[in-house]
């Protein structure tokens, strides 16, 4: 990271309340351009809520979110792709009756310019040319994630691990500058996790995407992220490089004390 370069994403004093429940309390942090940044914390800590605020799903009760120096607190979720943000969901959120290919093509929505009239007149309005051009790029993403063999299968019929990949492919198709991943490796076996970690690193290093991810597996977090944010009961406990943050006494207490969710208390203890 270049010191002094403006962050790609900055959250300033984010609070989020649901009735009496405070999901987030005055959380501030910044993600630098080009890094892999992880949010960790026990279940219910507010990680997903934070990602939802960034992606426009929730409007924070207080605070503001800045992307490349621009206030994006208010624009709705459907403006995010054009702004440069793509995301995946913790619970699979594919279009289950559409083919894998069509799912990923939906990611191109904001890049395809022709509306329904051109679409209906496919052959004469230029829609065909557009579709073919984008199909080429989408095929690159399909090759990258190694899902060629299920291209034409309805997404809802795929096994879990493949669906996670398709969801990542769809988010990548948005061509985001910032990719938000909510537990991309949850429920995966070791081998699948390694593949996914490899993909995320490639996206970061070769495709030039800044990655903000929520992850429970502390080994993965240590391996691939430059910096982490630790949340606990909606509050920020720490922010910084993983090896520094994990020695923080407050962080250790949060994990070792109330690790009720299978969060990686053990893994944390053995982490280098």
């Amino acid at each position: 990271m270049i010191a002094g370069a403006p962050p790609i994403l900055e959250a300033v004093g984010i609070s989020l309340r649901f009735g009496g429940v405070a999901a987030l309390r005055e959380v501030s942090f910044a993600v630098q351009t080009g890094e892999v940044f992880s949010i960790i914390g026990p279940n219910g800590a507010g990680k997903t809520s934070m990602v939802n605020c960034i992606s426009g799903r929730y409007r924070p009760s207080e605070g503001s979110i800045w992307f490349e120096g621009r206030d994006i607190t208010r624009p709705p979720a459907n403006r995010r792709p054009a702004i440069g943000i793509g995301r995946t969901f913790q619970n699979l959120a594919l279009f289950s009756h559409m083919t894998v290919l069509d799912n990923i093509m939906v990611g191109r929505h904001h890049l395809l310019r022709r509306g329904f009239l051109s679409g209906m007149a496919y052959w004469i309005g230029g829609a065909q040319r557009d579709e073919i051009a984008h199909r080429g790029e989408v095929e690159e993403i399909i090759d990258f994630l190694d899902i060629q063999h299920v291209r034409k299968a309805p997404a809802g019929t795929l096994p879990y691990g493949l669906r996670k990949r398709v969801e990542l492919a769809r988010a990548v198709a948005v061509k985001p500058k910032l990719l938000l991943l909510d537990e991309p490796m949850a429920g995966m076996n070791l081998e699948e996790k390694e593949d996914m970690a490899r993909c995320i690193l490639d996206l970061n290093e070769e495709w030039g995407m800044t990655v903000l991810m929520i992850e429970h597996d502390m080994g993965v977090v240590m391996d691939i992220s430059q910096r982490v944010l630790v949340l606990d009961f909606g509050r920020k406990l720490a922010e910084g490089p993983p090896e520094v943050v994990l020695t923080d006494p407050q962080v250790r207490r949060a994990y070792l004390g109330g690790a009720s969710d299978g969060a990686p208390a053990g893994e944390l203890a053995t982490a280098p």
Partner: peptide, 13 residues
């Protein structure tokens, strides 16, 4: 129809 929340996240109004 299939998932309006993720449709919105893909830029669909």
């Amino acid at each position: 129809r299939d998932h309006y929340l993720s449709a919105e996240m893909m830029g669909v109004d």
